[in-house]
Design a protein around this nucleic acid. Structure first.
Lengths: 347, 347
DNA sequence: ATCGTTTCTGACTACGTTGTCAGACGCAAC
DNA sequence: GTTGCGTCTGACAACGTAGTCAGAAACGAT
């Protein structure tokens, strides 16, 4: 009878090493050895075990393994819960790197605007059981995380715990922003305006500083930055305040540039003839905007593998030191399209 | 003597119920009862235990719990590894719904273009240990998944296993596409062209069918659909092939509309004066494009909670039947902006 | 023959939790 | 007094795996 209450007994437990051992005619310990690829197993025993395991559809029980080893082979990721291109791409890259390393991947998102959400997410992951935590938060609310008992690596400026460690040197983002601004200055623009990201995000501050540094390196006083919020809406609002004399703008991200572009359009200012525009992120749509957007392409894969690498070295039973050989440094890249041009000589 | 437990001794295992029990002067089993909020614990014992647990920084070991109960309190999600707005938003919504339900959330992404990737991702999740699996794949390569031993719920058309179950009725997407197309027909357009998503994605097929149905319902023969691939690049390519007589286009998603819009611009055709445009997704940039894009807003939160709800009812020790009371049906919504207008009367 | 070494195997146990069950206690009804 | 029944408690036995250790078997060197 199919009753709604699932009070059945047919829920059999999946086969364990003991079942495999019985079928193969060996001991449970030998099965364990085969499964873990230990030494000192005869070829004959190994084959018997593998055959039996396949026949029963055996899968090692990770809970039992974690119980006895004290390791979960699992890392937790605290990520900004957002479909923004940056965080979403980073999450995909992190999952790929993690699975490639044979670790499983648990996510706890943080909604925006809640200062204690990061601590909550960390606590949640610890309660679920993880060996380490990656903090993929573009903002730095996590300054004062409590000690967690497991290593925490932040993908940018953040927590200042003894056990935490900043994975990505903050120089990289700033450097590529400098490059973007220099591109505009080289085109002949006297100064470059900037629509910043929120300044309580370290990502926002780094991009701002890279922009400012590019000016200072040439002895130019940067104009006052406009305030954006990563969204097209913020870019649009900033666009309304952009002074008439501005001929070049570096936006903190592509969405901001989209909003700004709309505001310029409505004001009858053409891109790039009247105003040159550079974004940041290289979202898929960037190449197909009108005009196609000059922007900075990020290297999420590189950042993700690097951060995971750093974390894994902090794990107990870690990878040996092996100094920095693996993988080239993540590299960002300026993609020049049609939204940038020399300023019109005006007379 | 100040009891500052958990000082250093970093190599020590974290405290267990036995340690809490010793400190509290009760049995380990009583600690278990307190932690699990079981009945028949005196207020006095409960307080002693809670105090001791707090002092030691005790956290229940999920591995041991999973070992004995045979449940992980964890669901796995197989998702398309992509920063596309749709999949990324769905992932965020699923994480939120899952954590709200007290389950932990493990992700396995599938790279595009690999037919066996879904099976691999499922196997990976099963190896890590999950109680159920949500398939958040907009395409349907997973038609022939092997039996998994745990319930699998797909967020759309997909696997045809006995234990799987389709969560979202396929009618919803089609219905909102119909609405979008009807909006264009109501404006006076004779027909509406369509730039489809890939047709090996069920999402692509559903949107195509909704578009076609809207025509048939009015006795109109739909024009041949153009082929897109969700990307602006695909939309651009489709735009190059759009016949001159087309006055209205329904794009399978917003990115496609962005690419198409660019192609139209280059051809000197204005939106919406010459061609009306409707997208799908309502990405954040949609409202700030030039012109702001009419599009269909999705309800990821609603879909996610619904799918999780269905899955949880299939779990052993499930939620009681409780027929369909919880949560309103997910609702999509046409957002009319400036990219749609009546056709120019041409004479 | 005896010894040592390498290879292989399985019995036993520990990991931290929950399920089972027996028993102690208090209290009300007989 | 006894009986019955809720309430509370702890001893004990699992769960499925990996670590420890003792020992068997094979083989070469003494």
């Amino acid at each position: 009878m199919t009753s709604h209450a699932a009070s059945d007994d047919a829920r059999r437990r999946p086969p364990g090493m003991t079942d495999v051992a019985r079928l193969a005619g060996v001991s449970q310990k030998t099965v364990s050895r085969v499964v873990n690829n230990e030494r000192y197993v005869s070829e004959e025993a190994r084959e018997k075990v593998l055959r039996a395991a396949a026949e029963l559809g055996f899968r090692p029980n990770t809970a039992a393994r974690a119980l006895i080893t004290g390791r979960f082979k699992r890392i937790g990721v605290v990520s900004l819960g957002s479909a923004l291109y940056g965080p979403a791409s980073m999450l995909v890259a992190l999952e790929r790197a993690t699975r490639a390393a044979g670790l499983s991947f648990m996510v706890a998102n943080t909604p925006e605007g809640q200062p204690e959400a990061i601590q909550d997410a960390v606590d949640w992951l610890l309660a679920q059981g993880v060996d380490g935590i990656l903090l993929s938060e573009p903002k730095d609310e996590g300054q004062h995380l409590r000690p967690a008992g497991v290593p925490i690596v932040s993908l940018g400026q953040a927590a200042d715990l003894p056990e935490s460690q900043v994975a990505l040197s903050r120089g990289r983002t700033a450097a590529s922003c400098r490059e973007a601004v220099e591109h505009l200055l080289d085109l002949g623009h006297a100064k470059v305006w900037h629509v910043a990201g929120p300044l309580d995000w370290w990502e926002g501050r780094e991009r701002l500083e890279g922009w400012a540094e590019a000016h200072r390196a040439r002895g130019i006083e940067p104009p006052p930055p406009l305030q954006g919020d990563w969204t097209p809406a913020g870019g649009y609002a900033a666009g309304l305040e952009l002074p008439p004399e501005a001929t070049a703008v570096f936006c903190a991200n592509d969405d901001t540039a989209i909003g700004l572009s709309r505001a310029l359009n409505e004001a009858g200012r053409r891109v790039p003839e009247d105003v040159s525009l550079v974004g940041f992120d290289d979202i898929p749509a960037a190449a197909y905007l009108t005009p196609p957007l000059t922007t900075v392409q990020q290297d999420f894969e590189g950042d993700a593998t690097h951060a995971l690498d750093v974390l894994m070295r902090l794990l107990p039973g870690a990878v040996p030191p092996e100094p920095e050989a693996k993988g080239a440094a993540p590299r960002r890249r300026l993609v020049v399209r049609s939204s940038t041009a020399p300023p019109l000589s005006h007379e």
